[in-house]
C-alpha cells in the first residue's frame, strides 16, 4: 500500500458515538457527477476534434497549449489552456486515500477510452474497480493494468509514456526522486502523452520537475484541490471544491 491510511481509521476511537441512522437524502456521488458524462458518440468526436496532435500543425489558430479537458468545468477554468496538459507530467498529491483523487480523472479516462485511446494504470495500490469505471463511462476494453515489482514500476511507467501509444499513463509512486520524475516528464514530453503520478501529500515539499502539481486535502465541506505548481502560472494557489 502506498498511502498511509488516516490515523483515526484503525486506531481506537476516543469517544464512542451513538449509531447514526442512514442519511435521509442521498448525496451526490463523489467527483464523477460534477459533470455529467456526455453521451458516448459526441464525446468521442469531441475529443478527437480537440486533439491538438491531430490539428496543431495544420491549423495554428487552435489552442496554443495542447490539453485534455478534465471534464470538470471549474477545474478546466483553473488549468492553463483549459485542461490537463498533454505531453507533460501531472502530480496528484493526496492527503489520504478516498478523497476522490482518482475519480477526478474519470471524465478524462472515459473520454479517452471512448476515443479508443488506451489508458494504462501502472502498479495501482488496490484493485481498480471495474464496475465503478464502467459506471463512469470508461470503456474497459481500452484500460490496461500493469503489475510490476517495485523496482520495475518506474521503468514500466517510462516505457509506457515514451511509447506514444497510450492515451494516458497513471502511475502510483510512493517514493520517487527528482531524477526519476524528470525522466518521466521527458518521456511524456517526447511522446505527447499525459502522465499522472499519484503521490502522498508529504512529497509536496520536495522539488519536482512536473508540469503541474495538485494538492488534494480533506476539508470540512468536502475535498479541496489546490494547484500548487503550474507551468506558465508561477506561484499562487487556487482552491477548488469538487465534491460536497
Amino acid at each position: 500500500m502506498m498511502f498511509t491510511p488516516a490515523a483515526d481509521l484503525f486506531a481506537p476511537e476516543p469517544t464512542s458515538t451513538a449509531w447514526p441512522a442512514p442519511a435521509a437524502a442521498m448525496p451526490a456521488p463523489p467527483a464523477a457527477s460534477v459533470v455529467a458524462a456526455p453521451s458516448r458518440d459526441s464525446a468521442a468526436l469531441e475529443t478527437v476534434l480537440r486533439h491538438p496532435g491531430v490539428w496543431r500543425r495544420k491549423s495554428p489558430a487552435v489552442a496554443a497549449v495542447d490539453v485534455l479537458p478534465s471534464g470538470h468545468a471549474a477545474l478546466d477554468a483553473l488549468l492553463p489552456g483549459g485542461g490537463w496538459p498533454r505531453g507533460a507530467l501531472c502530480e496528484l498529491l493526496s492527503e489520504h486515500d478516498g478523497l476522490g483523487e482518482c475519480s477526478l480523472l474519470l471524465p478524462t479516462l472515459a473520454a479517452l477510452t471512448r476515443a479508443r485511446r488506451r489508458v494504462v494504470l501502472v502498479a495501482p495500490p488496490y484493485i481498480p474497480y471495474a464496475p465503478a469505471l464502467a459506471a463512469a463511462g470508461v470503456d474497459l476494453q481500452h484500460v490496461v493494468q500493469i503489475d510490476a515489482a517495485h523496482a520495475d514500476t518506474h521503468w514500466t511507467a517510462e516505457q509506457c509514456l515514451r511509447s506514444g501509444c497510450c492515451g494516458a499513463v497513471l502511475h502510483w509512486l510512493a517514493h520517487g526522486d527528482y531524477r526519476e520524475l524528470r525522466r518521466l516528464q521527458l518521456a511524456a514530453e517526447s511522446s505527447g502523452t499525459p502522465g499522472f503520478v499519484f503521490r502522498p501529500l508529504a512529497a509536496a515539499s520536495q522539488a519536482s520537475p512536473s508540469a503541474l502539481r495538485l494538492r488534494i486535502t480533506s476539508a470540512a465541506d468536502g475535498t479541496r484541490f489546490e494547484l500548487i505548481k503550474c507551468r506558465g502560472r508561477v506561484g499562487g494557489t487556487t482552491q477548488l471544491r469538487l465534491r460536497a
Binding site: A18, W19, P20, A21, P22, A23, A24, A25, P27, A244
Partner: peptide, 9 residues
C-alpha cells in the same frame, strides 16, 4: 451535506 438524522427507535 446534512448530518444524518438520529436513529429512529
Amino acid at each position: 451535506m446534512k448530518p444524518a438524522p438520529p436513529p429512529q427507535p
